[in-house]
Amino acid sequence: MYAFDIERPTTIADAAKALSGEAQALGGGQTLIPTLKARLADPGTLVSLSGISEMQGVCMSDAGEVCIGGGTTHATVAAEATAYPALAETASHIGDPAVRNRGTIGGSLANNDPSACYPAAALASGATIITNAREIAADDYFQGMFTTALDEGEIITEVRFPVPEKANYQKFVQPASRFALVGVYVAKYADGVRVAVTGASEEGVFRWTEAEAALTSNFSAEALDGLSVSADGMIGDLHGSADYRAHLVKVMTGRAVSAAA
């Protein structure tokens, strides 16, 4: 690692101030620290967000949304987001137990790894990403692989999830990294079904709108029968061809629909 200083602010305001210069935010560090070890980042100063208590925890908003502090670990979401069981279940399968004790929802969404689970959950749920500066709708937030609407130094302080009638996330893991080779999150709301796909596309997480339309009129796996996913723009690598990923999108969507609760 290159040398850097660590700052540990205890308020969002102090963190924002610390991040106004050349500094970089450190969430749980489960992705950033390996990146630093490979000397792929040289932040000068890291601003650790783990000591900010106002960014921790799970609660319900007056509008009935599940609100998760940006610094909340996956383990805490798994244990405490009981009002949104599919989200808690998703969190309980991110990484491994030790990673879940450190990794945070804010860190995951800020990084927007194209194979991460939370981007699919947030996009399929139509979540709102709240930062120290503004509120961003999930549909506007994800802007391609490792790219988001966040400005430099902007901190995800909270994520609000409207609770669907039914939802489920199906992850087909890449056997080495155990990230999603393809992950599909299906959420059924009163006003329609949303389907978000991670792991598959070179553009990062995306909504499969054809499936959404079909499932909105008939929420069953059979509704997908006539649909197909194009392999254009899908990731092809050691672990699976673009064709294979496109195929898995449909399989995992069907499974998520069948398992949705």
Binding site: P175, A176, S177, R178, D237, L238, H239
Partner: peptide, 28 residues
């Protein structure tokens, strides 16, 4: 089932860490 040290045609190792070289885990 899992392990493969793959090279591309230029001689770059494609599976040069546990992110891409699949080690058997307990649930495999």
């Amino acid at each position: 089932l899992l392990e493969n040290c793959a090279y591309d045609e230029d001689g770059q190792i494609l599976s040069a860490s546990y992110m891409d070289y699949a080690m058997p885990r307990a649930d495999d």
